[in-house]
Design a protein around this nucleic acid. Structure first.
Lengths: 347, 347
DNA sequence: CAGCATCGTCGAAGCGCTTCGATGACGATG
DNA sequence: CATCGTCATCGAAGCGCTTCGACGATGCTG
């Protein structure tokens, strides 16, 4: 076990062939006779040969490492990013890549370093802002980069993200189809939105557009911190007849929604139907479980890593944006409103 | 920016010195005249020279990469591990190391590979079980490994962990000093404990020992899933006079504690004083904020990385266990019991 | 002033691997 | 039977860096 690490030379000697033959037999990059290959494989196995990573990197000019950058905003929910980092790692592993974690204040510099020193073969960018400076960096770098999230100016970039617009439409449609005509929405905490995180805006705009399209009363609130209370108050002022609530917000705020509604003597789903859309956190264990359109880390990360590896291994670098279709999970927090009765009471 | 990457040769030519002089000037491993060094530094800066990572690794036989292994137990709270992974990464960065994320079912193999291919210079092991097979692996490997968590057989290993025993004692003392005489404890979910995670046992045993020592009534419950309800029921059956509760459990269960107590018409801290000990999650935003002895990822990770780097760079490989002293955070969930009155009512 | 450290620099030998071009053996071709 | 293409293998040239030993120059020492 501890015995000195075996090298290609050792394998070559043991198999009675040259070094290059060993290399070709193991990589399959040139034809090698069945017989010789088997001899090499056997020798390699017996010596427990493992190619020296840096030697391989240097010679092949490829590290088989992907870098994952996650900036550390104070307001950012780092557990979400880490979930993404994990999914990236899993998918990368299945494609024979390792992942390097780059979590520094200065993501730009990390990215530049990873590229300049050839430490990593490519980069996955997490937590993308609308005006993310890493977009320009990526364009200038001539180096494979895939964004999970979509910056405002996505020209020339490869991006993957959940289809937040579709998720918003799906939420509105679900509620409208159930007869709701006055829908509130709680967005992400003000700070996140102000910083210019991209997806809250996309979701909100699509929400408003769809409500307008379907002729629904609507209003959007931005919570201040970790509580939903003020937002619910706001919404009920703006929409006294509100019977439905769409949450596209942080875990804290979503968890607080039912008690915030309870403060107004409203219960889910009897008085208010609720959907948590783009939720990275589970909602089925909330005191009142909520219907959910999950932010599916696995789907996004798988797609992103596949694209990145394609860019590295097969040179597929054309810009493109891949949207992951949302999926609706029903936990019973949306209730149909009897339209006739509703109308009757209003008249 | 995009221009072809500069190499030592380029720098050497630009500075009018030999390659080795450049290397020594940059590394400082041999004396170089002030004047020459400045010339080299200037040339390097102008060419934006960044040493090629794999070349450096190969020549120096050191990758400047640390591996972080986090096995993926289904029952495990991966966000906690990821928090640790992040802290490790931050500290590693400050010591000029990068971190590779190894999150596979087969942690053993990952570790072996990292060592055998010299991909990483050392490994940080997270989520350590009492009977963790990685302990034996580490002993057999002659390779720097640091455990965050303490396996049952820690001989020959370098381990870092929070001092759970001390945290348990601290909790008991706090409550006992406040006059409580009947203390319940909710441990980690049954599955975690059964799997042999190490720290729940250490905490529980120290809790029991201290209670016994101070002559306090006590009982321990193991929740089944994510709810505290059954555990609270159990404890109140075992300890009808219970006035204090120590939580050393998962975030879900801890968050549920106040409502589980409320079901018995008990409020915190009026009827029951509560301490969350060894909590990786924040408790001050709970409906009722809880006193907390945090599981301080930063402290453990900093210590662990420092030890690992010492083992790598300075060969300090002697076995040792470093315990991080716990720290008490008061959020008002512990209330003093007037002993005289208590006694009076009992008589 | 011969003898000896010390300092600053250079050249060259690798680190372990990949990969290109060359070579020989062999059967197929005209 | 000379020629050519294929197939399997080998040798050698790097990849970009670190590091060891050597060497001239300089400054001390006795």
């Amino acid at each position: 076990m501890g015995s000195e690490m075996a090298t290609v030379d050792d394998v070559a000697k043991a198999a009675g062939v040259s070094i290059s033959t060993v290399s070709y037999a193991l990589s399959g990059k040139r034809a090698i006779s069945q017989e010789t290959r088997e001899r090499v494989l056997k020798a390699a196995a017996e010596l427990n040969y493992q190619p020296h990573a840096s030697a391989r990197m240097l010679a092949a000019n490829r590290s088989h490492i992907l870098a994952v950058t996650a900036p550390l905003h104070a307001d950012t929910d780092s557990t979400v990013h880490m979930q993404f980092a994990m999914e990236v790692t899993k998918e990368a592993h299945s494609l024979d890549y390792d992942t390097l974690l780059l979590v520094h204040d200065d993501t730009m510099q990390s990215m530049r370093r990873a590229a300049a020193t050839a430490l990593a073969d490519g980069v996955i960018v997490l937590d993308v802002d609308a005006e993310d400076p890493r977009a320009d960096l990526a364009r200038s770098l001539d180096y494979p980069v895939v964004f999970i999230g979509i910056p405002h100016d996505a020209r020339g970039l490869i991006c993957v993200d959940m289809d937040f617009e579709e998720a918003a439409r799906m939420s509105v449609d679900r509620l409208a189809d159930a007869g709701h005509t006055s829908i509130g929405m709680i967005s992400h905490p003000r700070l996140t939105v102000q910083r210019g995180s991209n997806f809250p805006l996309r979701f909100r705009d699509a929400f408003i557009a769809r409500c307008t399209e379907r002729g629904l009363e609507h209003s959007v609130a931005y919570p201040l911190e970790h509580s939903a209370r003020e937002s619910v108050d706001e919404l009920l002022t703006a929409l006294p007849n509100m019977t439905a609530l769409v949450l596209n917000t942080s875990s804290d705020v979503a968890a607080d929604a039912s008690s915030a509604l309870a403060a107004h003597d409203l219960t889910i789903p009897h008085d208010v139907s609720v959907i948590a859309a783009g939720a990275a956190y589970p909602t089925h264990r909330f005191p009142v479980p909520l219907d959910r359109i999950p932010l599916d880390a696995e789907a996004s990360c798988t797609a992103a890593v596949d694209l990145l590896v394609a860019a590295i291994d097969r040179g597929e670098r054309e810009a493109r944006t891949v949207l992951i279709p949302p999926e609706y999970q029903d936990f019973g927090s949306v209730r149909a409103v009897a339209v006739g009765i509703e109308k009757a009471t209003q008249h």
